[in-house]
Computed example of a mutant assay.
Amino acid sequence: MSEWDLRKLRILRTLRERGTVTATAAALHMTPSAVSQQLTGLAAQLGVDLLEARGRRVRLTDAARLVLAHTEPVFEQLERADAALAAYARGDAGEVRVGAVPTAVPALVVPAVRALRDSHPQVSVRVRETEAAEAYRLLAAGDVDLALSLAAEAPSATDPRFTHVPLLADPLDVALPPDHPLASAPGLALADLAAEPWIYGGSGPWSDITRRACEAAGFSPHQGHSASGWTAILAMVEAGMGVALVPRTAADPRTAVVLRELTADRPVRHVTAAVRKGAAASRAVTHTLNALTTAAERIGRS
């Protein structure tokens, strides 16, 4: 196999563009004798004549043109590599690993990834769906670069390991069976559902959020069924097995469940992003945070 010397190939390419050895030397800040020496060496390496004399000038041989035709894609790819490395050095390129609670993935992460494809295509996002508290453990361990979770599960704001970015106050609506007597009642309040069987997880943040919301409305909820996944919860509500508090970002229009906005005692859950201290200096992370913030603002306006 022939020896391919990129530096010498660039000189040959420049000669094709400039036309003379003197002009080539000036463009590359070389002496004419150095240009001639490098091209002679390249011809020896490749085993073909690259130049032929035309009076006091030289011209490229057919072999030289063949060489350049095949090496042009190499130069193009190297230009792309240079651009990618420059973007990486600036922080405009790279992978951002995001650990996110299930409801945040379709509501926030997916819209952010779509936006980044247009605004910063060299930033790639790798998503890991996780539970709320686990997202912060993964962040602390360095397994993700950005945690998208519930503020209720977040470490203290004074924790020196993290920087927190509030994203969304996600309203909680009441999910009722389609034939529930209060499905169309005006002015629904949580206290109106005090005698209902409630569906929520046996433990974890959603259990705490449901209990606290009901207790703030003046009653302790009776847990009729235990489930942690929104598909299961909404399916049981649709079947008339109970009622549930559902974040607006978890609503599924494919079900027949009636979602009612509460006019009083309206609870919310707060979704926050967190990064390790200092990580926000990475422009790739900053671009991702900005895209998530924009996605959250759109939800807030809807």
Rank of each mutant, 00 (worst) to 15 (best):
E3A: 14
K8M: 08
L9Y: 03
I11D: 00
R13P: 00
R13A: 00
T14K: 08
R16F: 03
E17R: 02
T20Q: 08
A26C: 12
L28H: 03
L28K: 04
T31H: 15
P32L: 07
S36L: 15
T40P: 05
A43L: 00
L46H: 11
G47T: 11
L51V: 07
V58M: 06
L60D: 03
A63R: 10
L66M: 15
L66Q: 15
L68V: 00
H70W: 14
F75V: 11
A81W: 14
D82M: 12
D82R: 13
L85F: 05
A89C: 10
A93Q: 01
G94F: 03
V98P: 00
G99D: 05
A104C: 11
A104D: 04
L108I: 06
P111E: 06
V113Q: 06
V125K: 01
E129S: 13
A135D: 04
Y136V: 12
L139W: 06
L139Q: 02
A140Y: 09
A141C: 09
V144Q: 01
L146D: 07
S149N: 15
L150C: 12
A151G: 09
E153W: 03
D159W: 09
P160K: 05
R161N: 13
H164F: 15
H164A: 15
H164I: 11
A169E: 14
P177Q: 12
H180S: 14
A185K: 15
P186R: 07
L188G: 13
L190W: 04
L190V: 02
D192M: 13
A194D: 09
A195C: 01
Y200N: 15
G201P: 08
S207A: 13
I209F: 12
T210R: 10
T210S: 12
T210D: 09
R211H: 13
R211C: 15
R212L: 15
A213W: 09
A213F: 04
F219R: 02
S220H: 11
P221V: 07
H222R: 15
H222T: 14
Q223Y: 08
S228Y: 08
W230A: 00
I233P: 00
I233N: 00
I233L: 06
V237A: 07
E238C: 05
T249E: 02
R254F: 08
L259F: 14
E261K: 14
L262Y: 02
R266F: 04
A274E: 04
A274S: 14
A279G: 01
A281C: 02
R283A: 10
T286K: 01
T288G: 04
A296F: 01
E297F: 13
I299P: 05
